[in-house]
Amino acid sequence: MTKPISIVLGMFIRMVYNGLVNIMAEPDSISFYALSIIITTLILKLLILPITFSQMKNQKKMAELQPELQKLQKKYKNDPQTLAMKQQKLYKDANYNVLSGCLPLIVQLFVLIGFYRCFYEPVKFIFTEPGFYNSINKNFFYIESLDQIDKTMILPLLAAATTFLTSYLTTKTTSQGPGQDQAKSMMNTMMYMMPIMIFFMGRSLHSELILYWTVSNIFAIFQQLFVNRSIRQSAEESDEIRN
């Protein structure tokens, strides 16, 4: 399943690499290979924006449903079964898809696995000419070669920090109330566990994959800041209308 994804990603990285070679001189501090990974990551994030926008709309809609949800949670706090039924009806009437947030995560997971295969077999998926991969520069600022582990732990730490910030910003749009306590608790647990997992994974994985993850997170942070701002403005406008 992931092999075709790796083939496409490898061709894409190589296409970006060739484009850079043809339009500019290679900088001393950052190789074309590193730039190719960064540019490919940003392009992929832009390509899945339609899916992400759908998730944004759902986040915004959930924020708008908060007053009604809180009323239901207060009214049926001693009747969980009825509360669940009323919540489902509210979601259905508002055309809110509870599972919409899963799709971007699934897409990101497949892309991550695809990149993993690309970077561990670059001569198979990216640079197929014999000896070409070994001949190119692979430096990224202080990292001598991206196909090695970052022994300074700077990149893994940055990956962990951006993972935490992405999760933290996402929890700002999580629904509140007794009916959502379990989901919120799970999200809070993942907010702290995921960065730890990413950091320890970063201690043993090639720096290429950690670079991809970090750049992807930075894009997601700015994206989520935009979503949170939009949700906050909508809430303020709704408050003004009610008042």
Rank of each mutant, 00 (worst) to 15 (best):
M187R: 15
K184F: 09
V227Y: 09
T170F: 11
I196M: 10
I38R: 07
P80W: 08
P195K: 03
G177V: 11
R232Q: 08
M191T: 14
E68Q: 12
N58H: 15
I43P: 02
I196S: 03
K86E: 15
L99S: 06
E68C: 01
T163D: 08
Q182R: 13
I30V: 15
Y116G: 04
T41M: 05
E237Y: 10
K77W: 10
R203N: 10
L9P: 02
P122T: 07
S204L: 13
N134T: 14
E121G: 13
S216T: 12
N97A: 07
Q233N: 13
K124R: 14
T128S: 07
S230G: 10
I106T: 07
N18I: 04
G114H: 09
F141T: 05
F119W: 11
E237P: 02
N188M: 13
F12E: 01
M153I: 08
Y116N: 12
T214K: 07
F115W: 12
T173C: 02
F199C: 00
I7D: 10
T128C: 01
Y133M: 14
M62D: 03
M1D: 04
M15E: 01
E68H: 11
L105A: 15
Q233K: 15
E64S: 11
T163C: 02
N137C: 05
D79R: 03
K124I: 12
N78R: 11
F199L: 05
L65M: 14
I231S: 08
K60Y: 09
P27V: 04
H206C: 09
K151C: 02
I23H: 08
F115Y: 13
M187Q: 15
N22G: 05
F119N: 08
L225S: 03
R232H: 05
I5W: 12
P4S: 09
Q66E: 08
E208S: 15
